[in-house]
C-alpha cells in the first residue's frame, strides 16, 4: 500500500482541526484543534520520510513535537490567565479589538 494514503489522512485531519479552531468557542477545544493540525503535519512528515527513505522527516516531526510541547505550555498558561481575569474561556468574549 502506498504511504501516500497517510498523507491524504493527514490532509483530512488538518481540515478537521482547522474547522474545529474556527467553530468552537471553548478556547481549550480550539487549542486541541491546533494540536490536531500540528499532528497531521507530523503525520505527513513521517509519511514523506517513509516515502523518501530517509530520516530527516522524522527529525523534523520530532522538532515539531518539542516546539508543540513548549507551545502547549505557554498557550495553556495564557488560557489560565484569561480565565482568572474573565472567569470564562470563551473565544467570543474578549472582543476589545472591536473597531
Amino acid at each position: 500500500m502506498n504511504p501516500m494514503n497517510y498523507v491524504i489522512l493527514a490532509a483530512i485531519l488538518f481540515s478537521i482541526g482547522s474547522a474545529a479552531v474556527l467553530l468552537r468557542r471553548n478556547a481549550i477545544v480550539a487549542f486541541m484543534g491546533v494540536e490536531l493540525m500540528l499532528n497531521s503535519a507530523n503525520l505527513a512528515l513521517v509519511a514523506f520520510s517513509r516515502i523518501h527513505g530517509e530520516l530527516n522527516g522524522q527529525i523534523m516531526a520530532f522538532f515539531v513535537m518539542v516546539v508543540a510541547a513548549a507551545e502547549v505550555v505557554v498557550g495553556l498558561a495564557i488560557i489560565i490567565a484569561v480565565f482568572r481575569a474573565r472567569q470564562s474561556i470563551s473565544l467570543d468574549e474578549p472582543a476589545e479589538l472591536k473597531g
Binding site: 479552531v21 474556527l22 468557542r25 473565544l91 474578549p94 472582543a95 479589538l97 472591536k98 473597531g99
Partner: peptide, 17 residues
Amino acid sequence: SRKVQNGQVRSYAATML
C-alpha cells in the same frame, strides 16, 4: 472598514484560513 475589525478571534482565524 471598521466593521471588518469585529474583535472576534474566530473571525480573524476564518480570514486566515
